[in-house]
């Protein structure tokens, strides 16, 4: 797999804004970003209200995903280009989600919204209308999704990569530094996890580092890439970004995202927790 198979550049995107069969999708947590201006022709997916189950802590199910994509005017044959704010965290989460439900023709805009803006490219407030489709999803591909029991079993056996910031890893902060720090669950990290913050996989402009740079990064962190790997963060979106780097850019075969992440693990009764630096 090459970089071009999973990423498009902002220059490519600008040239293909009206190419038939290509759909641009902005995915954000803060959906006012889209209202303030988005890539011309892009539709919006609201990470919280459209991708998450409104009651249980889980994703929308297969039927819900089919309904969502049908309403957005996305068909099974479309090439979907995902992008968003926060260095593509939620776009990477959506990418993982599209893969989970079997949509193969999906790529990320390298650098996301930030790179597009730093390039000084056009944003519009015009909302496109797309004709409804009959999208059909596959069953979830659980080879890329980890659940809590598997994570506990992975301690000291599989690679566990904690992609939060060093201060969250050691327990000094409970949340990313742009958020207030009140938090009820325990701080710390899963024993045997290596701390490789997601930001180390990206350049300042939000683009991903090269496969070679990524290989060097994980080698330095002591990750044995021949072993299965599980990535986690706080709620599973920053770790989707790292999952993308490991599986899609480096081509590792057995990489799972633990979407329950620290908000689940740090609230489980009886599981081991490690504090401080590793």
């Amino acid at each position: 797999m090459s970089r071009e198979d999973v990423l498009v550049t902002t220059a490519w995107a600008e040239e293909n804004l009206s190419t038939p069969g290509v759909v641009f999708v902005e995915v954000d947590e803060d959906t006012t970003a889209y209202d303030g201006g988005h890539i011309p022709g892009a539709v919006r997916i609201d990470w919280k209200n459209e991708l998450q189950d409104p009651v249980r802590r889980d994703f929308v199910d297969k039927a819900g995903f089919e309904k969502l994509l049908s309403e957005k005017g996305i068909s099974n044959d479309d090439l979907v280009i995902l992008y968003g704010g926060n260095n593509n965290w939620f776009a990477a989460y959506a990418y993982w989600y599209f893969k989970l439900y079997g949509h193969d023709s999906v790529k990320l805009l390298d650098g996301g919204r930030k790179k597009w803006e730093l390039d000084g490219r056009e944003l519009t407030t015009e909302v496109p209308t797309r004709e409804k489709t009959n999208y059909v999803a596959s069953e979830q591909d659980l080879s890329i999704r980890a659940f809590r029991d598997e994570v506990v079993d992975a301690i000291n056996t599989k690679n566990l990569i904690d992609v939060r910031s060093p201060d969250e890893f050691t327990g000094k902060l409970n949340a990313p530094a742009h958020l207030p720090q009140e938090s009820a669950q325990r701080s710390g990290h899963i024993p045997s996890a290596a701390n490789v913050p997601w930001a180390k996989t990206a350049n300042e402009d939000g683009t991903f580092k090269t496969a070679e740079e990524l290989a060097e990064l994980y080698a330095e962190a002591g990750i044995d890439t021949s072993k299965p790997t599980i990535a986690y963060c706080r709620i599973g979106e920053r770790s989707s970004h790292t999952w993308f780097a490991l599986r899609e850019l480096m081509g590792l075969q057995d990489v799972k995202n633990y979407d329950g992440s620290w908000t689940e693990y740090g609230s489980l009764v009886g599981v081991p927790i490690e504090l401080g630096e590793k």
Partner: peptide
């Protein structure tokens, strides 16, 4: 606690 991790409007 915030449900998400995204940066809020400043």
């Amino acid at each position: 606690m915030s449900d998400g991790c995204g940066a809020p409007a400043q």
